[in-house]
Design a protein around this nucleic acid. Structure first.
Lengths: 116, 116
DNA sequence: CCGCTATATCGACGCCTGTCAATATGAGTG
DNA sequence: CACTCATATTGACAGGCGTCGATATAGCGG
């Protein structure tokens, strides 16, 4: 679980300019890839965009089903993925479920790219 | 192919706080998702990380095969995806192919998240 | 010219994922 | 309590993707 990937020197021949710099470990890469996986679908990007642009920064599922031209179960599925990725928050009020951006989540994700 | 999604008003009942704000179109979303798809794999993230940390900002395939513990064809495949996404550049010198980060590509990708 | 090395491409296989239809859950309403 | 509406969950299916082995291409050295 906590084993960091050890990179062995591997005797250079003529190419192979291995510098011993710290590099993204296998486990970290796994987690960060998971985050980008959540963003790697056009419909999920549009969901984020709509939620962000919505009045009050939140939208319920009924707001999201029509513009995406997707079935309601599919939208629910995408929203769950975005929530699990830490990008959206879910708040249930009465019968409706309202989704909103997690503050700073997008910025934090952007930061991951710089820290590569 | 080129049909923009038309969003009809859909008479609001009690929920549905549709604000007419500009939102990510289907085509744009497709392209941006493609970019994130390239980042949505742990091995590709590690490739970017290694290339970035490498001496001179470039690395050849032989540098990348071992630390990832992947076959050479697989690494070549991943590199091609990163090049197609505009994240890496390929320069062939003699027998070896050297890959380097496209300047500003990661920053530009980070910007996409802000512009959602 | 022949072989060796580095890299790319191809074909196949298994897994993951996006989608839908059907159903379950749960809250409001008569 | 029965009914309806909003949402979530389940199961199934098709297509996409990561991986490998085999093969092709291209440059270098004898």
């Amino acid at each position: 679980m906590t084993a960091l990937q050890i990179v062995e020197p591997a005797a250079a021949d003529a190419c192979c300019t291995s510098s011993g710099l710290p590099v993204l470990g296998a486990e970290e890469a796994q987690g960060k890839a998971q985050l980008f996986k959540a963003l790697a679908d056009p419909n999920r990007l549009r969901l984020l965009s709509i939620v962000k642009a919505s009045d009050g920064g939140e939208a319920c599922v009924c707001d999201l089903t029509e513009p995406l031209d997707l079935g309601q179960p599919t939208v629910s599925h995408h929203l769950k993925i975005l929530v699990d990725a830490g990008l959206l928050r879910r708040e249930k009020r009465g019968t409706w479920a309202y989704y909103s951006l997690v503050p700073g989540a997008l910025e934090r994700t952007a930061g991951v790219l710089s820290d590569l």
